[in-house]
Design a protein around this nucleic acid. Structure first.
Length: 576
RNA sequence: CGGGCCGUAGCGCAGCCUGGUAGCGCACCAGACUGGGGGUCUGGGGGUCGCGGGUUCGAAUCCCGCCGGCCCGACCA
């Protein structure tokens, strides 16, 4: 492609309010433009990268025997009502009515539609199956942000496995795990595979593929010693057992005027108390039922853990009036001592603790000398707390690291939830009807694109790995008005294209500096500089974008030399 | 959904407080010079000032409502 005839609108200024670096760079370098909140156009360069990524995804999915489909984005409500998710997913689904008033929705995922098709499977002998598609998903995110990292419309590679037995699902899951590893690695992304919460998707087990980045929104706890890694929504950790004093025979009420928070109580003049010796009492509403959630004063609740442990669908903090109704006190003086007739979920770290301080359910008063097991009617002991860096790995006790990450892939073992509801079953060897055991697997294509940029850029712009670069080689024509330069560059361009190399020819009538800066910005791996200076010696320059180191080569050897380098670098992609 | 900020040329912004002919930089068009890291000069084109209503002789500016965008929080498959 000749740059002078293409649409590559680079900018000199950063776009306003672009937070993530990938967002800034992709806009400035002319890869994407925003249309509305969380909705982006891919410009020719952006779409070229997207095609590179999807080609890799396709190849690796084909390699595990998956078959490609293309399903509708527009879904009838009835399908989602049958799976029970019409209500469940709430505002996150874009809903519309057709001209007859029928409810429809834009698909946010495709379990329902694929399962409907899978209901045509009749025999266990047709299993296993792996089906996939590259399709647009719509999710009405409450807060789109960070450019392509969190959007409302995006391309997803989603696949679904269909097996007779859980053991078969395990195998399909493993194949996806390996395929995902190869996909991310071929795209130049180092990923961490972590245990994750399955959330509203349901199912028994799930693994997320995470790319370490400050632009991400997920926190992951990991152990360098044994390899344990989990999303903090799921991560367990070991905390040192607290050594409480002997405590009191019974809880004792004391006045704490003006104390509203754990911090206030820590600094309370009359009777200061470390946060670790307080019981934090939270009031939550689980599917309409008001419950108490107890944590150590210095711990934070992970709502996903509460949701997973209780199986609740809607989990939210209680409102002030609901709290008053439940405990007859306000935030700041809440406690669970003496509470009955209400479920109380306590974090494991409170087990056996004595001499604790907690609210007295009377504004301005707290209780001390509370022995949790003696004084509080705990319904269930659960792991509910947020794991923190430095705490012990649950597998090997080494110190955990906690880092911010971008989720680029997520694989789920679904089981029979969808197949049972939507009637996808086969006859087994004994002639017995059995629901198909399913898995579902997703990769966000544009999010991957942004993640690569987050991980691979420098002060001057993007640095694409050759596997996903929009072009492999950029030829910078220093002075297109110089006939010798223009001819030499044109000949080089033709030669490289003839050799199957993807080349962009920067033949714009711009100053050299403009072209060099744009070249760095858009990030193509190899840049060939063709100009009068070098040509006088019969030379051109080859510059690697990554290192920005240039070497001079003879003009007549250049095409062969660059072709060799590109082919060699292409082959670095890990093979199966 | 709560808190904050912002909508003026393709992009980045000033003007608004204190109402009176709509501006600047970059980009764009024409021409000239120039040509190895965002060059110089000359001349030009481009605006329902987010939308609607109100106040006023007169509104980008003041008032009300709405819409859109961004950031923080909540939420999130």
């Amino acid at each position: 492609m000749r740059w002078s005839q293409s649409f590559i609108p680079t900018l000199r200024d950063d776009p306003a309010d672009a937070e993530a670096i990938s967002h800034k760079l992709l806009v400035r370098a002319g890869y994407i433009r925003q249309l509305m909140s969380g909705v982006y156009s891919l410009l020719p360069l952006g779409f070229a990268v997207s095609r590179k990524i999807t080609a890799i995804v396709r190849a690796e999915m084909n390699a595990i025997g998956a078959q490609e489909f293309h399903l509708p984005a527009l879904h009838p409500a009835e399908l989602w009502q049958r799976s029970g998710r019409w209500e469940l997913v709430g505002d996150e689904m874009f809903r519309l009515k057709d001209r007859r008033g029928a409810d429809t929705a834009l698909g946010m995922t495709h379990e329902e539609v694929f399962t409907t098709i899978a209901s045509e499977l009749r025999s266990y002998r047709q299993l296993p199956q792996i089906w996939f598609q590259l399709q647009t998903k719509f999710r009405d995110e409450p807060r789109p942000k960070s450019g392509l990292l969190r959007v409302r419309e995006f391309t997803m590679k989603d696949s679904y496995s269909f097996d007779l037995e859980p053991a078969g699902l395990d195998a399909s899951f493993q194949r996806h795990f390996q395929a995902y590893r190869r996909i991310f690695s071929r795209c130049g992304l180092e990923t961490l595979a972590v245990e994750a919460s399955s959330g509203a998707m349901g199912g028994s087990e799930s693994v997320e593929f995470m790319v370490a980045s400050d632009a991400g929104e997920d926190w992951v706890a990991s152990c360098a010693a044994c390899g344990y890694a989990a999303n903090v929504e799921k991560a367990r950790s070991l905390v040192a057992a607290a050594q409480d004093g002997p405590g009191l025979a019974a809880p004792e009420r004391f006045a704490t005027p003006g104390v509203r928070t754990i911090e206030d109580l820590v600094g309370f003049v009359d009777s200061p108390t470390a946060a670790a010796c307080q019981v934090k009492t939270l009031v939550y509403v689980l599917d309409g039922e008001t419950v108490l959630v107890l944590l150590r004063g210095d711990d934070q609740l992970v709502e996903a853990k509460l949701r997973d442990a209780t199986g609740a669908i809607e989990v939210r903090p209680a409102q002030d009036t609901e709290i008053r109704t439940a405990l007859a006190a306000s935030i700041g003086s809440l406690g669970a001592v003496g509470v009955s007739g209400r479920r109380v979920f306590a974090d494991e770290s409170l087990r056996g603790r004595r001499a604790m301080v907690t609210g007295a359910n009377h504004d301005g008063f707290h209780l001390r000398g509370v022995a949790v097991e003696r004084d509080i009617a705990v319904s269930s002991w659960l792991d509910l707390r947020l794991a923190r860096a430095g705490e012990g790995c649950p597998m090997c006790e080494a110190a955990l690291r906690v880092e911010k990450t971008i989720e680029v892939g997520h694989i789920f073992k679904l089981g029979t939830r969808y197949s049972e509801k939507l009637g996808a079953a086969v006859l087994d060897e004994a002639g017995v009807t059995r629901p198909i055991v399913m898995g579902s697997y997703g990769i966000g294509i544009e999010r991957m694109l942004a993640a690569v940029v987050e991980r691979s850029h420098d002060d001057a712009g993007i640095v694409w790995p050759i596997s996903v670069a929009p072009y492999e080689v950029l030829i910078t024509v220093v002075n297109p008005k110089d006939a010798a330069t223009s001819d030499a560059a044109g000949a080089l361009y033709d030669a490289l294209r003839g050799a199957g190399i993807e080349v962009l020819l920067d033949d714009r009538d711009e100053r050299p500096g403009v072209k060099f800066n744009d070249a760095d910005l858009i990030g193509i791996p190899y840049r060939l500089t063709v100009g009068p200076k070098g040509l006088k010696e019969g030379k051109i320059e080859i510059t690697r974008r990554q290192t920005r180191v240039a070497r001079s080569v003879d003009l007549h050897k250049a095409a062969a030399s660059v072709t060799e380098s590109v082919l060699e670098e292409r082959s670095f992609a890990p093979q199966r």
